[in-house]
Write a protein that binds this DNA or RNA. Sequence first.
RNA 1: UCCCGCGUAGCUCAGUCGGUAGAGCAGCUGACUGUUAAUCAGCGGGCCGCUGGUUCGAGUCCAGCCGCGGGAGCCA
Length: 465
Amino acid sequence: MDYKVRTRVKQIVVDEAVPVGTDVTVLGLARTVRRSKEVAFIMVNDGSCMQDVQGVIDNPDNYPELEKILTGAAVRMKGTLVESQGKGQKFEIAVQSLDLIGEADATYPLQKKRHSFEFLREIAHLRPRTNTFGAVNRMRSRLAYAIHKYYQERGFFYIHTPIITASDCEGAGELFRVTTLDLDNIPRVDGKINWDEDFFASEAFLTVSGQLEGELLATALGDIYTFGPTFRAENSNTARHASEFWMIEPEMAWAELDDDMDLAEDFLKYLFRYALEECGDDMAFFGKWIDKELIGTLESVVASDFERITYTKAIELLEKSGQKFEYPVQWGVDLQTEHERYLTEKTFKKPVIVYDYPLDIKAFYMRVNDDWKTVRAMDVLVPRVGEIIGGSQREERLDVLQEHMKRKGITDYEPYSWYFDIRRWGSMPHAGFGLGFDRVVMYITGMANIRDVLPFPRVPRWAKF
RNA sequence: UCCCGCGUAGCUCAGUCGGUAGAGCAGCUGACUGUUAAUCAGCGGGCCGCUGGUUCGAGUCCAGCCGCGGGAGCCA
């Protein structure tokens, strides 16, 4: 049996690259079968695109296996491509043969009806076969490609930072531990765990960020980016947090905060434009079924400039807004979700970049401003999703870095020796940020829950499939 | 981790004042139709999350537990 002869549904209905009259073989899953005495219709989807292709069977009585082709069955359909007599599709296939390859009986959980996203999460092994999750997974692939395209075309090098890390000083949340020790029989010395006996002869964790290593590579290669999985063991139970997620972290040598913000804005707009221009049929689906305002929102964001305001200005605006917030606004406290949403959804109605945050609420590696009150940090906030990018200009001055760390109570410099070394020799200004890939996919598709943009999400109490 | 809500048929849900379990979809049977998640008629389908309590009687009220969802914090 030759499976290579098949024609993808996308070539027929999206690209319209198959001439009428061509004999085609379509391999895919039956979505619905409508049968009567004189004629039967079968919708087949092969995952290559959103749309199904319709097969028309003029003499259903000659196809006894048709009775066994229920929703979800894998079928091979051969026939001639013709212009459709009916409404709703341009082309259809006049079926000459139809074979049942893999049966799906009535217990198949995906029926031709709307299922709740909550139910579909429980059958994550099957949900890619639905319209919504087929579209989401196609979008993830297309956007991942767009990310590489964007950076490669601009001279950034794709680098691979370690997923296993020995330093728990990455400073971005709780870490998952990696060990080969026998947990029922942990070796101890003086009552403490003897990490010398563990696989790496030290404690080891899953990375929460590739940034620190990214900085090292940037000082050598110029502009770099990472794109890989990231792990946070936070007990976060929200629609926008996952324990395992994908992050893009560009890092530019010879760059300051303005350059960082320029890159962030240009990069996001590029991805939005790419989705609108290159993923039309899937985006049309999201615009119709997930969020009616989606396309318009993305188009207006691409056309407009992101608002850029200092943290201090943001606090002023929130104080003057007259809005009652659950968490009172005050210079020095971090912006709460309600504050971020007010800025993006009410004040500006578009993405907002807030920069120059108070030194006390940001990480030690961010470049200190001369007043020693603020650091060169920036967050990109978007309506609905919230923080989508967090970044900063890095502290390149060794003495200032160490003074900053001292003020933050970090006194053990030993784990940071290599981080200090690139400031000790040939230090230069550099900046970068982290973009949550899954949050971008949420924003672009309109999907409201991060568990529905990851094929197999990992969140507290859930690591199935 | 905290606050709130929910858990009933394969799925989506209703279930009044505490009185012996209901609809739509899917499936099955049949009819009909160039149909579009087709339509029409009929049929089958239940550990009401678990444990305990109140009561003559609990899907319904109470407590605990488990699970899920929404919001918050942490953050991308």
